[in-house]
Design a protein around this nucleic acid. Structure first.
Lengths: 221, 221
DNA sequence: TTCGTTAGTGTATTAAGTACACTTAAATGT
DNA sequence: ACATTTAAGTGTACTTAATACACTAACGAA
């Protein structure tokens, strides 16, 4: 039992985990096994331990659900309306993570819950205020493509310019001109040729590129 | 006494309250009367009540310390490193507020604490991790001037273009060309002439403008 | 060697941002 | 009334970034 002179809310982290698969933006959901919202899909998350920081808690949950670590993770917003959880006052610090498309051979889940990747346009009804969280995450993601190098966080260690362009086109939901895109992205000086080529399909092989500073997201303009 | 099966952190809100005075960006600090960090300056803030939302709590604290309400308030970030408060685990949801320069005839403070406006370049040593919070708030503020109409939140109901330019110059710490600034800001179509003029000093009177959507902050470009 | 497919490239046009200096309208002092 | 001081107000040329647009190159398969 833990006693306090004043009431304390419970504190959780929830994570919107994005990846790109089949030219579609997907996010990870977990089917709730217990009440409330039993059987509904929800964002992965859980309680913050007393001896861990908030980002640390988010990375722990991320690793537990997907097995991945070291990926891009950013705090999104903190949600704490009274009544957002019917049991007790729960405040959640929401985060979003981007997983490169080559790291999704992750184990399904740590515990026995049902886990699934959902296209952002085919989301089921979500538990709690999680659809509000997802909505805000998507807005942030789209906005950041415009003024940062965030999109590179989706790329595998080597990738073609066409693949990179598809990432932008998928998330922004608009087609782009190939020549203009290449001119623009190369002018950023954030990627470089690896010297390798990707030979696949009956056509000219594509040059492979890598991100110069893989972990880093820079503001551009 | 309040009992929980699992330990809960305490939850606070802290607010970076900005205003502009004498062509200087200032923020409000409160001298701590009790331990820890007794006598040190700190951001205004306090515990979140169990029946109020997070923004509600921030607005309550803002109103208690400054008497102002209805001003621009935005969530900044949530800080929750274990050990940031020596007494117990305290997680704080940090906000920042912008107060128009004509609303600073506010009452000094609700309680007996010492309260003061400090220029952002002349801040004293701060309690807790508050200097980290201030640093992040300043970064956000500067960034948002570039891609939103945030700066208008500092303006009184009627203002001259020169005053508006000074707001940008003060916060961005760089001089701007008068003609280019006017061309740019008028092209935003976010402000309009009031028809009034400001006569003061031995020079040509300036046209007064107002913000078209006073509460609103739009992303530009 | 022809066909199918995706990779890769340049130029002209338009829009936005930057650099830069004089005139105007008022108040003050003689 | 006139000259002086002060900040308000205005336009144009130049530079840079964004856009529109179509063909050639390199490979695999038949």
């Amino acid at each position: 039992m833990f006693n306090y002179a004043y009431p304390h809310p419970a504190l959780t982290v929830d994570i919107v985990i994005y990846t790109l698969r089949n030219a579609e933006l997907k996010l990870l959901l977990i089917k709730r096994g217990g009440q409330p919202y039993k059987g509904k899909w929800a964002l992965p998350g859980g309680f913050v331990q007393m001896d861990e920081g908030l980002e640390e808690a988010a990375r722990r949950e991320l690793e537990e659900e997907t097995g991945v670590s070291g990926v891009y993770l950013e705090q999104l917003y903190t949600f704490g309306e009274p009544g957002r959880d019917p049991r007790e006052r729960v405040v959640t610090v929401a985060w979003y993570a981007l997983i490169p498309s080559d790291q999704i051979h992750i184990r399904a889940a740590s515990d026995a819950e049902a886990v699934g990747w959902f296209g952002v346009d085919e989301l089921p009804e979500l538990a709690f205020d999680h659809s509000q969280i997802v909505q805000m995450a998507h807005k942030r993601l789209v906005a950041k493509l415009d003024y940062s190098t965030l999109a590179f966080q989706f790329m595998p260690s080597e990738f073609t310019l066409t693949q990179l362009q598809q990432v932008y086109e998928t998330i922004l939901q608009q087609e782009m001109d190939k020549r203009n895109f290449r001119k623009w992205v190369l002018a950023l000086e954030a990627i470089e040729e690896t010297g390798h080529k990707q030979r696949e399909g009956q056509h000219r092989p594509a040059k492979l590129y890598r991100v110069k500073n893989p972990g880093r997201v820079d503001v551009i303009k």
